[in-house]
Design a protein around this nucleic acid. Sequence first.
DNA 1: GCTTTATGGAGAT
DNA 2: TCTCCCTAAAGCC
Length: 331
Amino acid sequence: MPEGHSVHRIARQFRSNFQGQRVTASSPQGRFAEGASVLSGRTLVDVKAVGKQMFLDFDDELWLRVHLGMYGAWDFAGEITADATIASANGRMGQTNQHGTDLAAAILDDAGENSLHSIGAPRNTRVRMSEQTKGLAGEEWDTFPPPPVGAVRLRLLTKHAVADLRGPTACEILDSTAVNAVIAKLGPDPLLDPSSAAEDRFTAVVRKKATPIGLLLMDQSVVSGIGNVYRAEMLFRSRIDPHTPGKLIPEELVRGLWRDWARLLPIGVETGQMMTMDDLEGEDYRRAMASRDDRHWVYKREGLPCRVCGTHILLEVMGARKLYWCPNCQR
DNA sequence: GCTTTATGGAGAT
DNA sequence: TCTCCCTAAAGCC
């Protein structure tokens, strides 16, 4: 269940192992059979990620738009680049386990650092995470490609690698005009636009609205890529009450939110985890990372004492999603 | 086995 | 604000 960082990681994986390659497309599950037949035989020429959406550009400006939604995931297998930062790319990307860490990152954790791959080298592997296989680095397959498992909406196969898409909320073929229309509706993504203009745009929109900041951060037209975990964590990090109307937040604080997102997102892309306690140091940091239940300031910590002040963390529903916050620190 | 849950969003009301 | 869609895994009986 991805927020923006996962989508950028997936895009990177496609660039590394699929871009420039001719693909055979199919829909093992059958629900994207028509689209797959349109894509099949074409070459992937470009890959774009904006917020939580990814766009794959095939011959003749035919684009595949994929939005993973809450349960979508890509499984990669074959000769998949596994550099130090993409270790988790061998596994299912997007889907995460109950502790809020990327499954594949958990593989890395469990298997021990650097024991899995030679850096940067493609490696024949297949990773399927489940309770039974958890902790294994991966499975070698007997035949390539490995048979699709479960409800695979779309399979993209090259000579050496395969990507299986399951459970997306959106999977459709668009022309470039339509792609641009989708992107035009999205708020700035700090990885796409690190300029001060993006920060200005975010700041201006937030400071114009009476909407609670807890809703604005989740609004993909205001800022791209933030989901429920980052929302809660960022508001805690900035000590902002989630109910505060955007227009009442001092400009510098709003700019601080943008800069924090611009800081957290690349960390998430590199680590594959929604690392929001990066400002801890030394022993505190190691302890936080050692336990997957212990990685967040407030997310999923309702009823537990705030890590800063000891006040019980609250849970409420905002924007039809669970919002976690500290009523003492955030006001 | 069944129910619940999840990092999302669109469309109807 | 409600309802629905997408899928898999964990938790419960």
